[in-house]
Deep mutational scan, measured.
Amino acid sequence: DTFTFTLDGIEVRLHGASEELIKTIEELLKRDIRWEELEKWIREWEK
C-alpha cells in the first residue's frame, strides 16, 4: 500500500507504510506540523 499526503506543498508517498505509522502521521498533520518536524520524526521512527 502507498500512503500519499501533501505537506508544505510537497507530495509525499510512503510505500509499505504500516497502519500504525499512517495513523501517527495523520495525527501529526492535524497539528499543522512542518516538514522539518515530520522528517525528523520519520528518521526516529526508522531506528
Rank of each mutant, 00 (worst) to 15 (best):
W41F: 15
D1C: 10
V12P: 00
F5M: 04
E11P: 02
K40I: 11
E19C: 05
K23V: 08
D1K: 08
I10Y: 09
W35Q: 02
L28W: 07
W35R: 03
A17R: 02
L14K: 00
E27I: 08
D32G: 13
D8A: 03
L7C: 09
S18C: 04
E11R: 01
D1I: 13
G16V: 06
E37G: 05
F5E: 02
D8E: 08
D32Q: 08
E11G: 01
A17G: 04
A17W: 06
R31F: 10
F5L: 06
I10A: 03
W41C: 08
T4E: 15
E27P: 01
W45T: 04
D1A: 08
E37F: 08
E39V: 11
R13T: 15
F3E: 01
T2M: 07
R31I: 07
I33P: 09
L14R: 00
H15D: 11
K23H: 12
F5H: 03
E37Q: 11
T4P: 01
R34I: 08
I25G: 00
L28A: 13
I22L: 05
T6N: 10
E26W: 07
E19V: 14
E27A: 11
D8H: 04
L29W: 02
E26N: 11
A17H: 02
T24Q: 14
I33R: 03
H15F: 13
K30S: 12
G9I: 05
K23I: 08
I42Q: 01
W41Q: 10
L14P: 00
W41N: 06
E27F: 07
K23S: 10
E19N: 12
K47T: 14
L21P: 00
E37R: 03
F3M: 02
T4K: 03
W41G: 04
W45D: 03
E36T: 12
D8M: 04
E20P: 06
T6D: 14
R31H: 12
W45I: 08
L21F: 08
T6Q: 11
H15A: 06
G16Y: 06
R31L: 12
D1E: 13
H15C: 08
E26C: 04
L14S: 00
S18D: 08
G16L: 06
W35L: 12
I25D: 00
K30A: 13
L21T: 13
I33A: 09
S18T: 14
E39W: 14
L21D: 15
K47L: 12
E46D: 12
K23R: 13
F3I: 03
D1P: 12
E11F: 05
W41M: 14
T6G: 02
L14N: 00
L28D: 00
F5D: 03
E44T: 04
L38I: 04
I10C: 13
W45A: 05
G16E: 05
L7D: 02
L29M: 06
F3W: 08
E20M: 11
L21N: 04
E26S: 10
E46P: 10
L29T: 02
W41T: 14
L7S: 03
K30W: 05
E11N: 03
H15M: 09
E39R: 08
E37M: 07
E46M: 14
T2F: 08
I33N: 04
I33S: 04
T6R: 02
L14I: 15
E36S: 13
R13K: 15
E46L: 15
T6S: 04
D32K: 08
H15I: 15
T4F: 11
I22S: 01
G16S: 05
R34Q: 07
G16D: 09
D1R: 08
E26Q: 14
I33F: 06
S18L: 03
I25F: 03
L28V: 07
T24S: 13
R43D: 08
I33W: 06
T6Y: 15
D32I: 06
T24L: 15
E26K: 15
L28M: 14
L14G: 00
S18K: 04
G9M: 03
E27R: 10
R34A: 08
I33E: 02
E44I: 07
R31K: 14
